[in-house]
Nucleic acid binder design. Structure first.
Lengths: 247, 247
DNA sequence: CACGATTATATGTCTAGACATATAAGTCAA
DNA sequence: TTGACTTATATGTCTAGACATATAATCGTG
């Protein structure tokens, strides 16, 4: 078989494209430990020869591996397998309805309290803003199969999201509304554990002193605060699962 | 100024390269909401004209945006702004020493118990394996500035990581050792809240009944279980922070 | 030996083409 | 109207070059 016929031919018998094959080959060597951290990956021109392709093709494969933090590329020196620095887990927090229906349970929602007001000093501190604009303060509860699932305590900055003034939070949970109306977000989550106080225990239908998982989420839209929300979950029954992956 | 002189010139006055500028331009339009979810991004040949560059250059910019899930690309149809599906937070769990020293505190480590044994039924259930190989069971404590920071209860499957038999876990925490000796991992984290029982309270120096954040982590290496670990943090003082990003 | 200048080289970016391929849209017959 | 066929088109991948740029290595010099 000639070199020419052995080569590329994108959609012949090999399903994946060439650059994907190169990427997978290298990835596999790294993941199996055949190429340990610090190992120098063959130079681009060596890979060109091995796979009989142009430099752009191997470059694309290597660039993607670098983007995924699997390798590090240094000019003049070459590309090297990175040592895993930390386990990073991706915590996917869908909106509450999606989270509950994904568990195969029926979703229930109750608005406990919703008021519109000029931001108090406490509100401003919580939202991290200095000017006293209007805010919406919401307390509500999510349930799964009619059992309390989480209580939510939220503040929305109306100067960032004026449209929220017209939303009907008795019908639609504020989390869902925001997810579908605020085009993009940056967020910070803080997870901690507390014991249920009187008010929380009552809302969740658990004993005072029972453990609760607390998630505080702050959401921004290009440097403007959108919302601050605190969620209380019954700690012994609820679990946050973060799957995947070494890096 | 002629078209030619206006063009590219990679390292002239513009610091970022052209494809990065294109990517940033589009990203900005999406993040500010100027191009809302569903909006069709100009076709590649239109972007070629706008930026006076070759198709490969705009393709690289668009490919990266697609990889980041900011846009969706469909053959024949074009590229479209994706609607945010869920908030996903990246939880970076470095090894304990790195986590504590990053806070500017001094790291301390004490091995409480370490024993090698043939896997019991409970061990096998916890590791999710069926055969009864050897395991190492470790209990230890991490402290920051001499204050208990977390207690760790770990099982290592020696049939997956035989090298662990020779590690000195009195000197090096098992998490660090594994991170540096097991080339790659997949993991699942489960986060929950409990109240401290007698043993945990004593180890952490907190009151019985105080809230604790619990992280269970299962780690695999290409379908083989590596380790199962349960970490207890004092819940009122410790916080897990997950930063970033809409998607 | 220490240190600054020079050189070689691997990666970073880019071009102007090419063909492959999925699919939206149009065409035509039943 | 509907379903099957054809066509146009935007993206997906690839090539064989090019110049830019950071930097490891080398070489000279004090």
């Amino acid at each position: 078989m000639s070199l020419a016929s052995e080569r590329a031919k994108p959609g012949a018998s090999s399903k994946p494209t060439l650059y994907k094959r190169i990427r997978l080959d290298i990835e596999t060597r790294i993941l199996t430990g055949e190429w340990p951290p610090g190992h120098r990956i063959p130079f681009e021109h060596q890979l060109m020869a091995r796979y009989r392709c142009s430099r752009m093709t191997v470059n694309k494969a290597l660039s993607e591996l670098a983007q995924a933090d699997l390798i590090e590329r240094r000019r003049r020196a070459g590309s090297f397998v990175r040592r895993p620095q930390h386990l990073s887990a991706v915590l996917k927090i869908a909106d509450m309805r999606a989270e509950i229906t994904a568990l195969g349970r029926s979703y229930g929602y109750q608005l406990i309290d919703c008021r519109r007001r000029t931001a108090t000093a406490a509100d401003r501190a919580r939202l991290g803003v200095s000017t006293a604009g209007k805010v919406i303060a919401i307390a509500c509860r999510h349930s799964a199969d009619n059992v309390p699932f989480a209580v939510e305590d939220r503040l929305i900055d109306l100067s960032t999201v004026p449209e929220a003034a017209t939303a009907d939070f008795a019908r639609e949970p504020p989390g869902s509304w925001l997810l579908h109306h605020v085009p993009w977000t940056e967020a910070e989550h803080t997870i901690s554990a507390v014991v249920a106080d009187d008010r929380t225990a009552k809302a969740l239908g658990i004993a005072v002193g029972a453990p609760c998982l607390v998630i505080d989420r702050y959401t921004w839209r290009s440097a403007r605060t959108v919302t601050a929300v605190r969620l209380h979950y019954p700690g012994e029954t609820h679990r946050l699962v973060a799957r995947f992956k070494g890096g």
